[in-house]
Design a protein around this nucleic acid. Structure first.
Lengths: 143, 143
DNA sequence: TATTGTTATACTCTATAACTATA
DNA sequence: TATAGTTATAGAGTATAACAATA
């Protein structure tokens, strides 16, 4: 006898669709704050303090020249600023401007709010279980 | 007494990171098959048969002019073809070429394989639970 | 008039290759 | 020589607005 408990979606299919949904939410919120998804992602990476270009290329999985352009445009919009590293004068750090920090925090909070809302119908324990399972996958996928 | 059962990540944070991981896998596989992520996504949407432009804009959340460009480039690469709708001569359907179908299936299978692999360490029942929970989120998020 | 799709235009994002400045 | 970052260039992706053809 077939029960109703069998998974509706293949696991990988579920992941792909979920990723698209998250991407969409992220894109919508970004646009509402007049940011591109990539700019919003950059701002979110900088909320804990300045980060060097090299580290940013790793975190964003971008070529260094691509990052140069992204930072250029964000700088032109007054969202971030470059500061020279005093000890290694080749290097620089990227930091948020006041405006960049303000918008970055707003966008981050809004994304979090909408995603949490999506899971609002799941019981809390199942939500935590889901977060733990995802955490396990993430450590396997990268670090 | 604090147990080790508390969630490591906030739920929304977990979702965002998971989405980035999926996006990255999707992008890597696409590049290995000489596709952009968007082209691969288009091919995947067409594996079950031709789809009209309007329906594609909805599925991909793109403006119609953006889709025109995407289809143009995919057509130039011999991945898809336009066919006129006999009943409504304004409309057209996009279908895979043989080559497009071949590459699309290959890319799709490879993405699925790598994502399933990521979850290989989770016990099967937890994996199914995860897929079910994601399915619940997805129906809430869109349909 | 409304709808389907394309064209024109302007940005953004991204990569590769060559380059500058510093280490 | 090696590393950090930029510049030059080219192509892809995206949106807005105006347009053509059909309904």
């Amino acid at each position: 006898m077939v029960t109703t408990k069998e998974p509706v979606l293949r696991f990988s299919e579920a992941l792909v669709r979920l990723a698209h949904l998250v991407q969409q939410v992220f894109g919508e919120v970004s646009r509402e704050h007049d940011l591109t998804s990539q700019q919003a992602q950059l701002l979110c990476l900088l909320v804990d303090g300045p980060v060097g270009m090299s580290e940013l290329t790793r975190a964003l999985h971008l070529e260094k020249s691509s990052l140069t352009g992204l930072v250029d445009r964000a700088e032109k919009r007054g969202l971030v600023a470059r500061t020279r590293d005093a000890r290694d004068r080749r290097a620089c750090h990227i930091e948020l401007t006041c405006e960049g920090a303000r918008i970055g925090v707003l966008a981050h909070e809004e994304v979090a709010r909408r995603l949490d809302e999506l899971a609002a119908e799941l019981p809390l324990d199942q939500r935590d279980l889901l977060a733990s399972a995802i955490a396990a996958i993430l450590t396997r996928g990268r670090g």
